[in-house]
Structures are given as structure tokens and as C-alpha cells.
């Protein structure tokens, strides 16, 4: 099983949804690993082997009940300021061409696929950046190389969520577009029934299935995104336990709100 959660923007909720789905599978007894090909972040978590990975993947691993490893986030891009970036591949600072980065990412993905029944991937930023499309690794790159079906996550709080869904679908290269299977509306407040027609329209226009809304919730996952304000990393088993507990309660809320996790399972198995 494999699936990738793509965001229509940064902070759309990819990290959380990925964690929720990891938790869902893990509670069902499926062995699952999170994966994010590359991460642009200032925060990192140090694995037992001493490798730096994105904090998001560490949380996702915990809620999956597995030990975080470097394969879950093989490429770490560390902004140095002034536009310069450190590329850390498999724990080592490297200067390698674009294709090589994708190759390394695929290698890590393959190792996880062998070891686990499900690999739940998280994209990076928006997959529809016109100025970056040809260099994309974490979104289109992985979808194309490993035929990973995708679910779009859009943030409705700022408005324009339907435009973001449709626009992302339109801008994704045609060869991978059929892999876009579903969409989730995150940070929704109020009565979901008011979305009715709009949701149907997006389904009709794109062929993607509506998977549900996730209500506005105070998330206790420190967002790993470089844009978000995070102070201090996770510490100790108590912290880990708190995350797992929080993931469980989020999962329950999301299910109550009608998030169709079975549908995601179908997509992951397709």
C-alpha cells in the first residue's frame, strides 16, 4: 500500500493528515512507515543512528509505532540564509545533481516498501509551483517514479480552497494527473452541508473523490514546516506518548466528521 498526501500550499495540513492516516493503519494492525522524500526545514530530529530527519516524520513514525529512521526522510534541505541551501542526503551533506537526489529518495522509499506493508508519503509545499515543476522531487517526482496515488489536502480557513484544489489539479503535469484520486478539506468550521454543491463540482471537474472535511482543531503536532513557529523539539517518552494520545483523539474527531479513511485505503491499494 502506498499513498502520498499533497498540500495545496504549505501549512495546508499534510503533516497532520499523514500522521492521522499512519495512526489509522497502525491501529488496524497494518505495519506502516511514513515517508517524505525531501524536507525543507530548520528543525530536525536526530534518529537513534544519529541521522537528522524532519521532525514531522519523527512524529509520524511514533504514531505508526515504529522507530524513526533516515529512510523516512532521506533528503534534508537546510536553508542557510541568503538563498543558500545545504543538501543533506542520507545523513551526509552532499552536493549532487537533481536526478541523483530523486534516485536516492526512491531507494529509501523502496527499502521502506520492502519492510512495511504500507508507506504513507507526505509531499512538500505545493506540487504545482510552475517555476519548480521540472525540479520537483518530493511531490511529482515520487508520484511519477513510483506510481504513488495522491490525495490533495487544502486549507479552507484562508478561503479559496476550491480554487486551490482545481488549480493544483490543472497545473499538475498530465502524465501524473490521473494519480490524483481524492481531496480533503482541512480546518473547516461550521456546517459541512454548505459545501455540498461546491464539492460535487470539484469532483465532476477533476474526477477526484471528496474524502471529507477535518474540523478546525488545535493541533499539538509542532508543525515541521520552516514557515511555522516551533520552539524546541520533542523530548523523551512522555512527549511521544502525548503525541500518540493526541493523534488518537484527532483521529476520532476526524472520523466523527466523516473523514472517509476507508476511501483512502482503497486509494492506497490501487
Amino acid at each position: 500500500m502506498k499513498v502520498i498526501f499533497l498540500g495545496t500550499s504549505s501549512g495546508a495540513g499534510k503533516t497532520t493528515v499523514t500522521a492521522l492516516y499512519c495512526r489509522y493503519l497502525s491501529r488496524k494492525g497494518v505495519s506502516v512507515a511514513p515517508f517524505k522524500a525531501s524536507n525543507l526545514s530548520l528543525n530536525s530530529y536526530v534518529t537513534k543512528e544519529g541521522h537528522k530527519i524532519g521532525t514531522g516524520q519523527a512524529f509520524q513514525a511514533w504514531v505508526s509505532g515504529v522507530e524513526p529512521t533516515i529512510d523516512m526522510n532521506p533528503v534534508l534541505l537546510r536553508p542557510l540564509g541568503g538563498g543558500a541551501i545545504d543538501v543533506i542526503v542520507n545523513g551526509k551533506k552532499q552536493s549532487i545533481p537533481q536526478e541523483e537526489v530523486l534516485k536516492e529518495a526512491c531507494g529509501a522509499f523502496d527499502r521502506l516498501s520492502k519492510k512495511y506493508e504500507a508507506v504513507v508519503c507526505e509531499g512538500s509545499g505545493s506540487p504545482a509551483e510552475l517555476n519548480l515543476l521540472d525540479r520537483d522531487v518530493a511531490n511529482i517526482g515520487m508520484m511519477r517514479e513510483r506510481n504513488v496515488p495522491a490525495v490533495l489536502v487544502g486549507d479552507i480557513e484562508r478561503g479559496g480552497a476550491f480554487a486551490a484544489m482545481y488549480g493544483t489539479w490543472l497545473l499538475i503535469p498530465e502524465d501524473v494527473r490521473p494519480l490524483l484520486k481524492g481531496f480533503i478539506i482541512n480546518r473547516f468550521r461550521g456546517d459541512p452541508s454548505i459545501l455540498g454543491e461546491a464539492v460535487e463540482r470539484i469532483e465532476k471537474l477533476t474526477g477526484m473523490s471528496f474524502i471529507g472535511t477535518i474540523p478546525y482543531m488545535d493541533l499539538r503536532f509542532p508543525e515541521e514546516d520552516s514557515l511555522s513557529d516551533t520552539r524546541g523539539g520533542p523530548e523523551g517518552p512522555a512527549m511521544m506518548e502525548a503525541f500518540v494520545k493526541n493523534a488518537d483523539s484527532l483521529l476520532e474527531t476526524a472520523e466523527q466528521y466523516g473523514l472517509d479513511l476507508k476511501k483512502i485505503e482503497e486509494i492506497s491499494s490501487s
Binding site: T8, S9, S10, G125, S126, E129, A163, A164, Y166, L170
Partner: peptide
Amino acid sequence: WGGAFAYAVGTVKL
């Protein structure tokens, strides 16, 4: 926030 092109295209097309 990223996704600006998608937001622009989607907004106009919807």
C-alpha cells in the same frame, strides 16, 4: 504560503 500559481489558475477557472 506556496501554491500561488494553483490558486491563481483555479480562481480564474472557477
